[in-house]
């Protein structure tokens, strides 16, 4: 596990750097041949009468990082929130189309949304620790899932905090309020909290957008490590981040999926003019 002092597993580059060079990116591997974890087909999404997503089809392979990019309001977060039915909480929303988690349509009427969200964890843009202790934040998911034995909970809490690279910093003050952690630590706590329910898929909605460059680099390293275990879908405003952490990138614009493909391909030879203009910073 990394600490602040030890060198990162992988060189981290300054976030301010302009578009990453081809050499920095991992080559487009065979990720599309991997098993498909989440498959969205012809997804339309409506807020009342306003259609926010138009006919989105996207495959998210297992143990891959899929980055959703695009300008504000393009629908990338809305799409992400369709994947764990978080949009159900907003009155007057409606989904059409099919989203398969492995082979289960998560929008079929008898889906247990509570079970779905245990398998599809989520980390939010703004860290949202509960006003409880560090320990209780991480233990919350297992507790609502019915885990009661203290030693089991202890084990889950430690393992989750280690995975989110926070254990070294908080192991001696697990009973302190989570609200006293720094912004970067709070976000890693929220990642630990999401990992504690042992999900298959991890959704991240701009997880580093409110963090300083150093914390951002840590979160990115973490994503890189976590994809060995999880399937990750990340929304980001930051194209360098998308280029650094993802295997697949999907570019959204005005509710449409303009283009999706291997991250290396999309950033080096975009097929669509809109994609090219966006990634070269001409708009957005």
């Amino acid at each position: 596990m990394m600490t602040e002092a030890s060198p990162p597993a992988r060189p981290t580059r300054p976030v301010t750097q302009r578009l990453t060079t081809v050499a920095d990116m991992r080559p487009a591997d065979d990720f599309l041949e991997r098993p498909q974890k989440v498959v969205a087909t012809n997804v339309n999404f409506f807020y009342g009468s306003h259609q926010a997503l138009h006919d989105i089809s996207l495959r998210m392979p297992q143990n891959c990082v899929t980055a959703l990019i695009g300008p504000s309001g393009c629908g990338k977060s809305t799409f992400l929130r369709c994947l764990n039915r978080m949009n159900d909480m907003i009155e007057g929303t409606r989904v059409e189309g099919e989203i398969l988690l492995e082979d289960i349509d998560i929008y079929r009427p008898k889906t247990d949304v509570v079970e779905l969200r245990k398998r599809v964890g989520m980390v939010f843009q703004k860290s949202n620790p509960f006003p409880k202790s560090i320990y209780e934040n991480v233990a919350y998911g297992p507790r609502v899932a019915g885990v009661k034995q203290r030693d089991v909970l202890d084990g889950i809490v430690e393992q989750s905090l280690r995975r989110s690279a926070l254990w070294e910093e908080v192991s001696d003050r697990l009973n302190e309020s989570a609200l006293r952690l720094s912004g970067g630590q709070q976000q890693r706590l929220c990642i630990a909290r999401a990992l504690a329910t042992d999900p298959d898929v991890l959704l991240m909605d701009e997880p580093a957008s409110a963090l300083d460059p150093k914390s951002t680099a840590r979160i990115e390293d973490l994503i890189f490590e976590l994809k060995d275990t999880y399937t990750i879908v990340i929304v980001t405003h930051n194209m360098q981040q998308a280029a650094r952490v993802s295997d697949q990138t999907a570019f959204f614009y005005e509710g449409h999926l303009v283009e999706a493909g291997a991250t290396t391909d999309l950033f080096t030879k975009p097929r669509q003019k809109q994609t090219e203009e966006y990634i070269t910073g001409r708009f957005g």
Binding site: M89, R117, F124, K126, P129, F130, P131
Partner: peptide, 12 residues
């Protein structure tokens, strides 16, 4: 955000 955080963990 607190509500969403809890619902996202599979809370009823």
């Amino acid at each position: 955000s607190l509500r969403e955080g809890a619902y996202a963990l599979g809370a009823t």
